[in-house]
């Protein structure tokens, strides 16, 4: 008892926080390694439909993204609210897909080119007309591997 009270007399010793920064740095490096930086801002509103049979995209670096949906509110004054195609970071027409695919192919190494796929991020309220046009254009460029982006539905 006596020993206990004597210890209190000195006041609380400061906790050494030197290792706290190390822990946070560890977390930081983990996030830096596992995540990749968002490539571009989305200019179209896309809420992909639900599906139960979804599979994971294996190689993210080999995917090219085509988004189709109504422009976001800040762009609607300029572009209207009809479904538009977004390639990388700007609004494009269906005819521009050819150049886009060619550029994407050029950016990958020759070994990887056969494994490239196109991810179609299409809003669930979009009509199939524009999607069909995009699909036809992809077929013409022989970019045949496609992924219809979807959310995993609650079982």
């Amino acid at each position: 008892m006596a020993k206990f009270s004597r210890k209190l007399k000195g006041g609380l010793p400061a906790i050494n926080t030197a290792s706290l920064s190390d822990i946070v740095f560890m977390l930081l490096f983990f996030f830096m390694l596992t995540a990749q930086v968002r490539k571009f801002e989305t200019k179209v509103m896309v809420k992909v439909p639900e599906a139960t049979e979804v599979t994971k995209l294996e190689r993210k670096d080999l995917a090219s993204y085509i988004s189709i949906g109504a422009p976001v509110l800040s762009h609607q004054a300029q572009y209207g609210d009809d479904a538009r195609v977004q390639l990388n970071d700007s609004f494009k027409e269906v005819d521009d897909i050819r150049d886009f695919i060619a550029a994407e192919r050029e950016a990958r190494s020759e070994v990887d080119r056969p494994f490239m796929n196109v991810v179609l991020k299409v809003d669930q309220n979009v009509r199939m007309g524009v999607v069909t046009d995009v699909k036809q254009e992809l077929r013409r460029c022989s970019a045949l591997k496609i992924v219809y982006s979807a959310r995993r539905a609650a079982q």
Binding site: A51, K135, Y148
Partner: peptide
């Protein structure tokens, strides 16, 4: 960063 994995239905045209 975005950590969300890309999910979808893979198809072949």
């Amino acid at each position: 960063t975005n950590l969300d994995v890309d999910l979808g239905l893979a198809r072949m045209l």
